[in-house]
Structure formats: C-alpha cells, structure tokens
Amino acid sequence: MFEARLTEGSLLKKIIEAIKDLVQEANVDCSEEGLTMQAMDASHVSLCSLNMRHGGFDHYRCDRSISLGLNLANLGKILKCAGNDDVVTLKAEDEPDTLTLMFESPNQERISDFELKLMDIETEHLGIPNEEYKCTISMPSGEFQRIVRDLAVIGETCIITCTKEGVKFSVSGDLGNGNVTVRQSSAADGDEKDQVKIQMEEPVTLNFALRYLGFFTKATPLGSTVKLHMSPDVPIVVEYPIDGIGSISYFLAPKIDE
C-alpha cells in the first residue's frame, strides 16, 4: 500500500507543469524514503531528477517500494481538476495498474477521486556522479527565467561564463548579439532570496541550448531561488529547491565546438 498526502496540493500541479513539456513518460519510484523520478528528454540531451522526501508530506506510507509508470501529460490533465487550495492524496496498491488521486477542498465540502492508468515504461537509469562543482551560482529564479526568455529571442545558444565578479550570459544570432551580466550581491543588499551568490574555485565557460534552459524555467513557480552548478566539460545542473520537501534538478549536456 502506498499513500501520500499533500496539504498544499498545488505543489504537485507545479511539479508536473515543470516536467511535462520536457519528459512525456516517466517512472516515479516510491519507497520508504519518499518519491524520486529520473527521466531523460526524448533527445537524450537533458535529464530531470525529482526528489520528494517522505517527511515533506503530511502523511506518507509506503509498505513496499513500487514504480509508477506515468504519462505526465495525462497526469497533468487530472491535476487540472484539483482546486489550487485542495489537499491532494495519492494512493496505489502494491502491484498497481492505476494511481488514485483524491482531491479535497479545504472545507471538505467537495471530494473528488480520479484513477489514472499506469504504463510499463522501460527506462535507462543513469548514475549521476557525486561531483564537486567548480562554480555554484545561487540567484533569484525569476531573474534566471527572464534572462533565458530574453536571450532566446536573439539566438539558440547561450554562453554562460562564471567568474568571481559575476555570471555573464551571452548570445549571438542573425539579428545581432547580447550579453546579460548579473553581479554578486553585497551582503547589505535586501532579502536573502533576491541575492546573487557565487561560490567559485575556478572560472568556467560553457555553451548551452537556450531551448532546454527554457524548459527548465517552467519550474520557476516552485521557489524563489535557482542554483546553477557548473564545471568544465560536464553538464550544468539547474537546481530548484522545493521548500521543505526536496528539489527538481535538471542536467543539460553542453554544446561543444567542433
């Protein structure tokens, strides 16, 4: 028996919105520790990894580890039937064919339940090395979203350069080129969540497809901060912490000069 209850049901809506344009089908693995999901996009350029700890749920029970093969677009359709303030409960048997979703309005006046058919999905599970990154940038997620959106109008590839002074996002295209530099905040600058912080061992420059960075920014509503982890010649990690429960991390392979 698997049962997981989230008072803030809208969180689940936001998580699926953040993944479903990149990944069509995925296995969500449920264990005593919580929910995890790892999936590549259809072109195998990027990888999305979701982690939700059991302690972040209001109620969590998982007697036996199970894998839920989900069509994320269809799950998104069902979650659209939940109100933004609804409590959402997920339920499945030990050898499930379906996932039951129950939505309760805050005053308990409306209770609905839906069953989503599960799928057998064969996926390749990749081992992600525990890497110490040369640069870690923490910045407001809305700022990152704006930069990616603005630069995507000009070209396809973004050059991200991280130095001690700041992070430079550069793009060039048929109409011209552009750069946006965000500088490290001084300690006196406003709220913690509005700050740009850079931890750097050595400067890093890498090229990335803006199209994929754009997919990742669908996770912006999940939190005020995004973290970018970069080292030379390895995928960037775009990590969105989800307050109190876990995170979504996206890994994107760099573009390499031929």
């Binding site: 072109s43 195998h44 990888l47 390749e124 081992g127 995928p235 392979a253 573009k255 031929e258």
Partner: peptide, 14 residues
Amino acid sequence: MSSQTSISRYFRSK
C-alpha cells in the same frame, strides 16, 4: 559552430 552532446555521454547506465 558548436554541436549538442548527449547526456548519456557523461552519466553511465546503472
């Protein structure tokens, strides 16, 4: 001209 690499080039199958 830069070319896109694949994620499986960096992370091995478990």
